[in-house]
Amino acid sequence: MQVNRREFLKLSGVSAAGAAVVLFADERKALAQDLKEHRITKAKEVPTVCPHCSVGCGMIAYVKEGELLQLEGNPDSPISEGSLCPKGAASMQFAYDAVGKANPLRQLKAKYRKPGATAWEEIDLEKALDMIAERVKETRDKSFVATNKDGLTVNRNEGLAHLGSACIDNEECYLVTKLMRSLGVVYLEHHARI
């Protein structure tokens, strides 16, 4: 049941106005006797952690039929106990500015910029990954130092650098380190230094 703002407010309005209002209403019935269903009462609660600073506040994303309806603090998290700072509280907007309205600034397509071009052009994701793999191989093969002048195996690839990131998950960081080290990359860094 996709609730847009009007219907929603009508719902809250109904619960707010309580009994039918007559010209000379005598006594307003208690408003909140029955639980008014609203946007997140029947939504699935998905626990997650805030992606901004490193306090690690718990968050709950309310999802119904795959649609993100609300994002709030997780009261069970002993660190944040349901609170979120402004950055955490706004994190739903990474995906949706409002329910059903995707954030227009989000980039949802792979893009490619030719040397010297003044604008992006769209590119197929798989094709982009193939081209990237070729460039990584080409750069590695070109600048690879297998052994140093004393004959010691050093397996160093100084043509390729990797930056990033303190904003990605542990599992992703591990894969970055594992792959980059196996490519012989020594220029490997992330935010922690800046």
Binding site: V21, V22, L23, F24, A25, D26
Partner: peptide, 8 residues
Amino acid sequence: AAAVGLGP
């Protein structure tokens, strides 16, 4: 007060 006049 109870009176809500023509408001509604």
